[in-house]
Design a protein around this nucleic acid. Structure first.
Length: 509
RNA sequence: GGCGGCGUAGCCAAGUGGUAAGGCACGGGCCUGCAAAGCCCUGAUUCACCGGUUCGAAUCCGGUCGCCGCCUCCA
């Protein structure tokens, strides 16, 4: 396929510039994203990466690209071995368990499954094969059952992270593992010897297991070829993980570049109090122990609210996880779904189910032409500019405002207004789909949002409904004093009352 | 010490050479029995600070200050 697809500009971390995405095969995209080392539940830093690339995946397909999206699970790793031995379980079973948990969280978040999700444990032979190639080409050496990559053999080492081996030496200060086995302190393990009681596979160098970086080089090229159009992951993977992947892949295949675009997602920060009471904002990470699991956050907030929150900041910038921000995002999602439900209500009033085939000669209502006609183009342009989701959200907000404006009147809508509402809904839902939002039935979504709040506030919907009903009765009797007293009671509980011609509804704040 | 990023209204956050999107909060109005929701109006002569380039800079260059990330496992 090579018809006119909208051109997409992305920021490439290697060249540190925005550039036009020009896939090797027109119309097709080969994309690889580093997944998670599965020894625990995912945290929302992982969730951010998954959401960002989910949007890219959705957007590229929305434009008509055929996307081959591979995201791995690292299920063989020393952290997994450590955790498994602590718990006295089999490492591969531990990993399998956390892959299931990850799948559960990502499904809840509405992450579309990638084309393939390969695991290290299923590619040991391929890893051994790439090691052999690297050994043959002199880019690797064996040392006492281990195999190391010889960083000085690769001229471009450092080209992604923009640093030189010499510069790193200056700051190393004993932090890089030095063994007498290594020729150079920055040489890294492609294969590690396993003790008898450790997980391992037979290899030409004895029983062992893969090093950390090799699995991504192997799996990406196996599924997508020697040159990827896009390779992504969290910012913190730039060095050493992605730098090492380049060294391995380019040295093994001889093809350059390994990836045309390197995309890196900014860190999720968290605000904390330091020891002396100062407010500090710093990176969320396992090693700092200041992380929120995706599961925790999902227990308190709607998946679409989490997605909305992630979309409020450009993917490359850091984002600060804060309850206020999640709550604001929740209210925005509520606002958007409320707008959708207003359309249904208004169209129902006029007896319209849909407006696929508007009556002959029907035009848009006055004042809505510009917004309705150019919308998807503007929306696509926002995302085509390096995934500018904040701008995309602003545009979505315009549609919702227009819907609310168009549904202000309590009377039956004209044909023109019905058509306008129909088109606005299509835009809102269509744009939402690209961001992985607004795909639920509005009534259902609003109920889900409400139920989450009920749970968080430990309230019972029946109790609220009773009070609301009692207030409605009082209102019918024009007993304003009693009605207002009941509303005050509800208000105390955090329940907000909304009267409308269709009756009284409520929501939680 | 090396490399990279950021500093835009009370808060969150786009914009990166052509004269400051959007959201939240605040204030005013419409609607309402009163509210809420929704809608309308309202806020930065200014983009950390100091110089420079330019007809023109938040946007480019140099410097200063502050914050953050990577250089060790990390998404």
């Amino acid at each position: 396929m090579s018809q006119d697809l909208r051109s997409v500009t992305l920021f490439d971390s290697r060249t540190q510039k925005k550039r036009l995405l020009e896939p090797q095969t027109p119309g097709e995209i080969a994309m690889y994203v580093c997944g998670v080392t599965v020894y625990d539940l995912t945290h929302i830093g992982h969730a951010r990466v998954f959401i960002v690339f989910d949007v890219l995946y959705r957007f590229l397909r929305h434009l008509g690209y055929d996307v081959n999206y591979v995201r791995n699970h690292t299920d063989v790793d020393d952290k997994i071995l450590k955790r498994a031995s602590e718990k006295g379980v089999d490492p591969l079973e531990l990993a399998a368990h956390f892959i299931e948990e990850l799948d559960r969280d990502m499904e809840t978040l509405g992450i579309d499954p990638p084309t393939a999700e390969p695991k290290v444990s299923e590619h040991i032979d391929d890893i051994i094969a790439m090691n052999q190639v690297l050994l043959e080409k002199g880019h690797a050496y064996e040392a006492g059952g281990d195999v190391y990559y010889r960083v000085e053999s690769f001229e471009g080492y450092g080209k992604l992270s923009h640093r030189k081996l010499e510069d790193m030496e200056a700051g190393r200060s004993g932090r890089v593992e030095e063994t007498e086995k290594k020729e150079h302190p920055f040489d890294f393990a492609l294969w590690k010897k396993s003790e008898d009681d450790q997980l391992g596979w037979d290899s030409p160098w004895g029983r062992g297991r893969p090093g950390w970086h090799i699995e991504c080089s192997v799996m990406s090229t196996k599924y997508l070829g020697d040159t990827l159009d896009i390779h992504g992951g969290g910012r913190d993977l730039i060095f050493p993980h992605h730098e090492n992947e380049i060294a391995q892949s380019e040295a093994a295949s001889g093809a350059e570049p390994f990836a045309d675009f390197w995309m890196h997602v900014g860190m999720v920060n968290v605000a904390e109090k330091s020891d002396d009471g100062e407010k500090i904002v710093r990176k969320m990470s396992k090693s700092l122990g200041n992380f929120w699991t995706t599961r925790d956050v999902l227990n308190g907030y709607h998946p679409e609210a989490i997605r909305y929150f992630m979309h409020t900041t450009l993917y490359r910038n850091p984002i600060t996880y804060a309850l206020d921000n999640l709550e604001e995002a929740t209210r925005r999602v509520q606002y958007l779904y409320t707008a959708l439900s207003r359309i249904d209500r208004t169209l129902d009033r006029a007896g319209y189910d849909a407006f696929d085939n508007p009556p002959e000669g029907t035009r848009l209502a006055d004042g809505f032409d510009e917004l309705v006609e150019g919308f998807m183009e503007r929306f696509d342009a926002a995302l085509a500019d390096d995934l500018n989701t904040p701008k995309a959200l602003a545009l979505i907000g315009e549609i919702a405002r227009a819907i609310n404006e168009a549904t202000e009147s309590k009377s039956s809508p004209s044909d023109a207004l019905a058509l306008t509402l129909y088109r606005l809904r299509r835009h809102l839902v269509g744009a939402g789909k690209v961001l992985g939002m607004l795909e639920r039935d509005p009534t259902q979504a609003l109920r889900e949002l409400r139920d989450l709040r009920l749970k968080a506030m430990e309230l019972d919907a029946d109790v609220i409904d009773e009070k609301v009903a009692a207030r409605e009765k009082a209102r019918e009797e024009k007993d304003w004093e009693r009605a207002d007293a009941l509303r005050d009671e509800l208000d105390e509980m955090g329940v907000e009352i909304m009267d409308s011609p269709e009756g009284t509804s409520w929501r939680l704040l």
